[in-house]
């Protein structure tokens, strides 16, 4: 009896606050936009009874969706979000791998401290960490001041308000998400395997590519999902660091909602974003499941 209560409380909570809201988003995406409060006409009301719902289902139209598909602004925002997220995920992996590798091979007694220093920035505000880059990257910012003083460049570089700044912001903010799963899988590798490879005459680079790297693939996969999925829908980074030329869907959704106050279009954008992400999300769940089963 109590067992069912322990299951029921979080279960009902998640259904109420996680699952049902998605259906509401879908429902509103089919509504008409209105200038009123709330700014949409409800399509159907559950309390009106089944007959009226049935009647109205027949009248549903996917007008908002055809609007989104016909407007190039939205389709290019989806495509460029995916592209920006994919490129930044790859860059994050390139920077995170050596760090995680170095950590996994550091003396044992150092490892908890190193771990803590990777996690610490993750605990400090995302917004603040993105803000910190504005002072560095802008035209009269610190990076340009440094490079000009060193004589590396003669004209200030324009990085702020470009897609480049968005890449830097995503890599920086999501680095801990990549380092942690990588470290977890690298740290588990049995050192004797590498010794065996060495004893059998394999040079260190070959041992790395044929032993260490394949064994770290579960960490790479988990890290890439953890970075890619939230990065596609990122809002704060493109808003603060990117310029008008950087289209990202999270930003589009935000401005549809807050600036245009068009809730039905914002909802339709969210539904399509979710559809884009459903494959990586299911892939992530599947990879987690497999890792758990392998761990047993």
């Amino acid at each position: 009896m109590r067992k069912w209560l322990v299951i029921a409380i979080p279960y009902v909570w998640m259904i109420l606050f996680f699952l049902i809201p998605f259906f509401i988003v879908f429902k509103i995406s089919l509504s008409e936009s209105e200038i009123s409060i709330p700014p949409y006409t409800p399509v159907f009301d559950i309390f009106e009874g089944w007959e009226s719902i049935k009647a109205k289902i027949g009248e549903l139209d996917f007008e908002k969706y055809s609007f989104i598909f016909s407007d190039e602004l939205y389709t290019s925002a989806y495509l460029s979000s995916i592209k920006i997220a994919a490129v930044s995920t790859f860059l994050t992996l390139l920077i995170a791998y050596p760090l995680a590798y170095g950590m996994a091979r550091a003396p044992r007694e150092w490892q908890p401290t190193l771990m803590m220093f990777v996690i610490l920035p993750f605990w400090t505000s995302f917004l603040i960490r993105v803000y910190a880059w504005i002072g560095i990257l802008k035209n009269e910012g610190l990076l340009n001041a440094l490079l000009l003083n060193l004589g590396v460049i003669s004209e200030p570089l324009t990085i702020m308000n470009t897609t480049m700044a968005v890449y830097i912001g995503i890599v920086y903010s999501y680095l801990p998400f990549m380092v942690l799963p990588l470290y977890a899988s690298l740290e588990k590798i049995d050192g004797r395997l590498l010794e065996a490879a060495e004893d059998l005459g394999s040079p260190p680079w070959k041992a790395f590519w044929q032993v260490t790297f394949p064994l770290s693939i579960p960490g790479i996969v988990a890290g890439c999902f953890l970075v890619f999925i939230p990065a596609v829908g990122e809002f704060v980074i493109p808003d603060l660091l990117g310029g008008s030329e950087t289209l990202m869907i999270g930003k589009t959704l935000w401005s549809e909602f807050f600036n245009n106050r068009d809730w039905p279009v914002a909802s339709a954008v969210a539904v399509l974003l979710l559809l884009v992400l459903i494959i990586p999300i299911v892939g992530f769940q599947w990879a987690q499941q497999r890792a758990r089963e392998a761990g047993r």
Binding site: L226, I229, F257, L277, Q288
Partner: peptide, 16 residues
């Protein structure tokens, strides 16, 4: 439902 919100973009969670 427990694992999906970990990676769900915040704009979707917020709007829904």
């Amino acid at each position: 439902m427990i694992f999906a919100p970990l990676v769900m973009p915040e704009v979707i969670t917020g709007l829904s």
